[in-house]
Design a protein around this nucleic acid. Structure first.
Lengths: 130, 130
DNA sequence: TTGCTTATTAGTAATTATTGCTATTTACTT
DNA sequence: AAGTAAATAGCAATAATTACTAATAAGCAA
């Protein structure tokens, strides 16, 4: 397995602003929400740049992508493993802190796959909605 | 909570063919794959009709929708609870049979949400790919 | 069986989320 | 300070899905 020669990365205003935007909130902003935060600092920033940099930052391991079924991807600066709950009434989407379960081995045993990680999304109703 | 008056459902050739298409395979076909199966029986069927009927069938509890992050929705006639594994190399997406875990209560305790169900998607490499 | 009502259809346009393309800009190396 | 190419802005394109509308056809009633 040869190391792939990858071009040198550059630090741009835009990339820094995008990273700061995600780390400054406890919500899980979408690319569009991040764009709306970044455009204050960088008035000419484009949505394409936001998407490209978010992909880079995920690739570099600095952000986590939360791919929610039937919804835009969201981004999270909290890198420690954790699950998420979605309120199916109002769409609220929050962390389930302090819970992690070791079930990859069970899946490997049952399927013969090599399992690297798993995601759990809980569905229900938030305190407000019930 | 008043019962909502809903219009009478009709059984159409198209709807029956769509349901048969999903129940006749062990894969988890996408709407487009289902369309390609149905078009043999109903040469003039439209993709819109496939989507509409799949949504109806899920609503009626006759099919299960598998919403895979960053992928088209897939449909499954197996209604008993089960998880899924995805091979991140070739895209294979199969059932994890015989495994179900009771973790909704733990999430409720931690978040205060009322939790109705959860989905787990495992990620890794299938036998072929490694 | 015939006709009536309206749920459903086919076809197309629109929408949403995201990526591709390209000329221009700009971060970083020398 | 100058050169190189990575990154940008702006726009076009794609993919998945839904919205809209006139035409069709289930299923009920006469």
């Amino acid at each position: 397995m040869n190391a792939v020669i990858s071009p040198a990365k550059r630090n741009t205003k835009q990339k820094e602003s995008i990273f700061r935007a995600v780390t400054s909130v406890y919500t899980h902003p979408t690319a569009e929400e991040i764009y709306n935060m970044v455009v204050v600092d960088c008035p000419h920033v484009s949505l394409t740049t936001v998407y490209r940099n978010l992909n880079m930052l995920v690739e570099e391991g600095k952000l986590r992508r939360i791919a929610i079924p039937n919804d835009s991807d969201r981004f999270d600066a909290t890198l420690t493993p954790h699950y998420h709950v979605k309120c199916d009434k109002c769409g609220a989407f929050v962390d389930v802190d302090g819970y992690d379960t070791d079930i990859n081995g069970e899946c490997e045993r049952l399927t013969g796959y090599k399992v690297n990680y798993h995601d759990i999304i809980f569905h229900g109703e938030c305190g407000e909605c019930r």
